[in-house]
């Protein structure tokens, strides 16, 4: 699944003209796409120097910041949508970030690799941690310090007072709505504060 396909899938969830905050915005491609195709405005947060420069090259507003330090730059409800795509699994303060996402945004969209995807289950059944396209690292050098399943997030969202508006899996560029916890390599949730 190319990065572009994921962008299209996620972009469909963002209402045109939205004010967007993209946490861990990488090279700014999605924000540029949202700006050009859906007239969205807003900011990205990124830590990596090279990616910050790529955002500037794209003309995307980027703020260099470590997400572990929180979102104190932003007031409550200051964005229509806060994106946290493939970022959650790298953060130590997962719950704080989720709450912060819900605080500054009217809606949040989260995506992360689904640990319960069947090839991962198979691998664990065989007694080994999975090394797959969606989780491509060995256990000892993975940047994914949080691994979770599609079903796990539903529980966490419930515990933190979030109402799930939409949820589905994505696998090889296709949206997976049937047994996403088993059949999808990536989990996507759109939520708001209850």
């Amino acid at each position: 699944m190319s990065q572009h396909d994921v962008h299209d899938v996620i972009a469909q969830l963002v209402p045109p003209g939205s004010r967007v905050l993209d946490l861990g915005c990488g090279n700014g491609a999605l924000l540029a796409h949202l700006r050009d195709a859906r007239q969205c405005t807003g900011y990205g947060i990124e830590l990596d120097d090279a990616k910050v420069m790529q955002c500037v090259q794209r003309g995307v507003n980027v703020i260099q910041r470590n997400l572990e330090e929180g979102l104190s730059l932003f007031e409550d409800n200051s964005f229509d949508v806060v994106l946290q795509l493939d970022t959650l699994q790298h953060l130590r303060n997962t719950v704080d970030m989720l709450r912060e996402t819900a605080r500054v945004g009217k809606q949040g969209i989260v995506s992360f690799p689904n640990f319960a995807h069947w090839p991962h289950r198979l691998s664990v059944l065989r007694g080994r941690m999975p090394v797959t396209r969606s989780l491509p690292y060995q256990w000892y050098d993975t940047p994914n310090i949080r691994v979770a399943t599609f079903a796990d997030f539903e529980v966490l969202a419930e515990q933190n007072g979030l109402r799930i508006l939409e949820s589905f899996g994505v696998h090889e560029g296709e949206i997976v709505t049937r047994w996403p916890n088993l059949m999808a390599s990536k989990a996507v949730f759109k939520f708001e504060r209850r």
């Binding site: 004010r19 910050v52 507003n61 703020i63 260099q64 932003f74 007031e75």
Partner: peptide, 15 residues
Amino acid sequence: VKALVDNRHDVSYAE
């Protein structure tokens, strides 16, 4: 940066 963000001005920030 915060003052600019509060006003929804376009800003990029490199640290």
